[in-house]
Nucleic acid binder design. Structure first.
Length: 711
DNA sequence: CCGGGGGTAT
DNA sequence: ATACCCC
């Protein structure tokens, strides 16, 4: 019956034999016991899964608060891809056809959602926010994030004096009332508080609600996060692993088992999770390989040793459009130009150079309506790629279109009739400028083009990578921060003496790590002390702008790191998260005294170098993207987007008539306020309390209007 | 089994 | 280049 107890034990006693992966071992406190106590203390991972509620709908409701009242569906082509909870109460579901949805709910309000720009931007803000607390963040789609908080939990655990103070935040799967003792699961209990704080941060800073799951691996965290649906969180205890796995209605519900896999499994007579759990491994090995078979079986058992892999910047950017029918090359050419233009601008904001271009099509076929895609790709001539990042997207597009058409003709004989239903353009193999410099022969072009290294204005200030110390905050015992200031109190002042020790060890960790990798600038300007990548001429290196130098070094570091990644124990080494954000930092502030910079590396509240810099140009500072259009192509859109400087979270909590009043005021007052930089003193009725905000986040004071802040 | 993305493995 | 996976 309850064989879950065999493999999922929370505590340091049993666990190991069943699946020996290096991840079962985590070091104890971060270097705290400097001693030789290298015996790794076995510790289960602690994983968080965040899942935003009806994400696209939430974004649209922020852009147009009036939509909160009405049943709202997000429309892509003739499908409702998601809808708000008002609509769900009326029977509308995800991925419902427009006709079905309108039938169920005639007054459903539809907003077109084919342009993902706003969703993508908000999505990266969420990931960036999470990363500012914990570097180990993995994205899954636009609305889900995994966090490995093992280390953070371990640190809090070490600070906790009173073991009786443990408690669970939110639900505990299959436990009701007081039948759970949090002190039996201290790490999961602490993690549930972290999850709650992060959800609160997402809500207060971005205005979004969502669910969280807390468990010992990604699979379980993801499964459990959905158990209480809108805006709640749930912990899964090891003793309930089998319960939750058994609750799944079919193998398809297991993340990682897709359509094809489920079909093959069914062919083997396996339909339920239990079927797969009990299936002899050898029966699977025939159909799937050895490794896949083990993985599938493990999944059914709730075992998942896959690490939380920091996602970083996207590895490809693509843009696509689908349609009923396209059958002439002129149409194709136009569509490709259109797609390339918008994609090119995204690429431009990203700042990296795409090395590969791919064109994908989907052909109509009655018999095999089941869509398959075909694609062809080619290397992008370097000068074209450079045009994109260096500003003249138009030029680049003009030059790319004929190349794209060549690819098109490799797939489609335009003499014969054809019928396409989709075109996709994709840039991949994205390279940082630094990598381009170090690449063979690329150096000449770099200099000859003399493209002044593009300043990444957007990133610099936006990535004030305050690594928030969620740690050392409210460990539960010193509840001095009762009913008051939430954000502040839990982070800052609390950790006094312990904080010092913490910082010390962090410093050591950072230094050691640098020594190991040998490629940070560290405490000297002496080039000789820096290990350059083999293909970089030191003299050339010296001539480069510092920004590029740093990128180069970071890139080199990336390589050394990845060469070592195959060793699992190193890949998951919890000591390395500082260097973890895989992105080279283009923007690291030219630290005046780099010595001290090292000190702040791990724990600072101010900008540090290993910032999550990738949402390249995305989580922009002065963006205020809500001002621009915000008009859904829907009936309701009475132009009541609100000023970008209003905190949507706060706004949404106002009484509704107040919301309406405010919105009509804004409508009247609007004509101006376009420019992101315009900090008009005039309309600043609310220069009230920015103090606390200003403290932590220097640059982007713009966006959130403190006037509405709860005080 | 749509939509507009994104990922890895082969 | 495709096939699978995820949302």
């Amino acid at each position: 019956m309850n064989n879950s107890d065999d493999e999922m034990e929370e505590d340091d006693t049993e666990w190991s034999k069943s699946f020996v992966d290096s991840e079962a071992f985590a070091p104890s406190a971060p270097l705290s016991g400097s001693s030789m106590n290298m015996t790794p203390r076995p510790t289960r991972k602690v994983i968080l899964h965040f899942d935003l509620d009806c994400f696209y709908a939430q974004v649209e409701m922020i852009r147009n608060p009036a939509l909160r009242l009405v049943p709202l569906g997000i429309q892509q082509k003739y499908i409702v891809v998601t809808c708000n909870y008002v609509a769900r109460e009326r029977g509308v579901n995800k991925l419902m056809s427009i006709t079905d949805a309108k039938e169920k709910c005639p007054d459903l309000v539809l907003v077109k959602g084919e342009d993902l720009t706003h969703y993508r931007e908000m999505s990266y803000k969420v990931t960036g926010l999470l990363m500012s607390y914990c570097p180990l963040v993995e994205r899954l789609g636009f609305d889900e994030n995994f966090l490995d908080v093992t280390e953070m939990v371990e640190r809090r655990l070490d600070q906790t004096v009173d073991p009786d103070s443990f408690s669970f935040k939110g639900h505990v799967y299959n436990h009701f009332g007081a039948d759970v003792r949090a002190c039996d699961h201290p790490r999961l209990a602490l993690a549930s508080h972290i999850a709650a704080e992060l959800r609160e941060a997402i809500h207060s800073e971005l205005g979004l609600t969502g669910c969280a799951g807390v468990a010992t691996n990604k699979l379980l965290a993801k499964l459990v996060s959905g158990t209480f649906k809108p805006n709640q969180q749930t912990v899964l205890l090891p003793e309930n692993v089998n319960d939750i796995m058994g609750s799944l209605s079919g193998l398809r519900k297991v993340p990682g088992v897709g359509h094809q896999t489920a079909k093959k499994l069914q062919a083997l007579g396996l339909v339920s999770v239990k079927d797969l759990q009990l299936c002899p491994l050898n029966d699977l090995v025939r159909e799937f390989g050895g490794p896949t078979s083990q993985r599938l079986k493990n999944l059914a058992l709730g075992i998942d040793d896959s690490p939380v892999t920091p996602t970083g910047a996207p590895q490809s950017l693509s843009d696509e459009d689908s349609f009923k029918k396209m059958s002439s090359t002129t149409e194709v050419l136009e569509k490709i130009r259109e797609l390339l233009t918008s994609l090119g601008e995204r690429m431009h904001k990203d700042g990296r150079l795409p090395q590969t271009f791919r064109l994908t099509i989907r052909r109509y076929s009655a018999t095999n309506k089941w869509f398959s895609r075909e694609s062809r790709q080619l290397p992008i001539p370097i000068h074209i790629a450079q045009k994109m990042t260096s500003g003249s997207t138009e030029d680049a597009v003009v030059q790319l279109v004929p190349l794209a058409m060549k690819l098109f003709h490799k797939m489609v004989d335009s003499n014969a009739a054809f019928h396409l239903t989709l075109i996709n353009v994709c840039f991949s193999n994205l390279q940082t400028r630094a990598a381009a410099v170090s690449g063979k022969g690329a150096i000449t072009s770099f200099f000859s083009q003399s493209s002044p290294p593009k300043k990444k204005q957007l990133e610099d200030s936006s990535q004030d990578a305050r690594r928030r110390c969620l740690d050392e905050g409210e460990v539960g015992v010193h509840n001095t921060n009762r009913g008051k200031v939430t954000t502040q109190s839990s982070f800052s002042s609390a950790a006094a003496s312990q904080g010092v020790e913490q910082k010390q060890s962090s410093l050591h960790a950072a230094e050691e790590e640098q020594r190991e990798s040998g490629c940070f600038l560290k405490e000297t300007n002496n080039l000789a002390s820096v290990r350059l990548p083999p293909n970089v001429d030191p003299e050339v290196f010296e001539l480069l702008p510092e920004e590029i130098q740093q990128e180069l070094l970071a890139t080199a570091h990336l390589h050394t790191k990845s060469s070592v990644l195959s060793s699992p124990s190193f890949a998951d080494d919890p000591f390395t998260p500082n260097i973890n954000p895989p992105r080279p930092s283009t923007n690291s502030p030219p630290t005046e005294k780099t010595k001290n910079a090292a000190k702040t590396l791990d724990i600072s509240h101010r900008a540090t170098s290993p910032s999550p810099q990738w949402p390249a140009g995305i989580s922009g500072v002065q963006r205020d993207s809500t001002t621009e259009q915000g008009k859904p192509s829907s009936p309701q859109s009475s132009g009541c987007d609100f000023p970008g400087n209003v905190d949507p979270a706060v706004f949404s909590e106002l009484p509704y008539d107040v919301q309406r009043e405010l919105m009509s005021e804004w409508k009247r007052e609007r004509p101006v306020q376009k420019t992101p930089s315009s900090r008009k003193p005039g309309r600043n009725v609310m220069a009230k309390e920015r103090d606390r905000r200003a403290a932590g986040r220097s640059s982007q004071a713009n966006n959130l209007l403190n006037y509405f802040k709860p005080s």
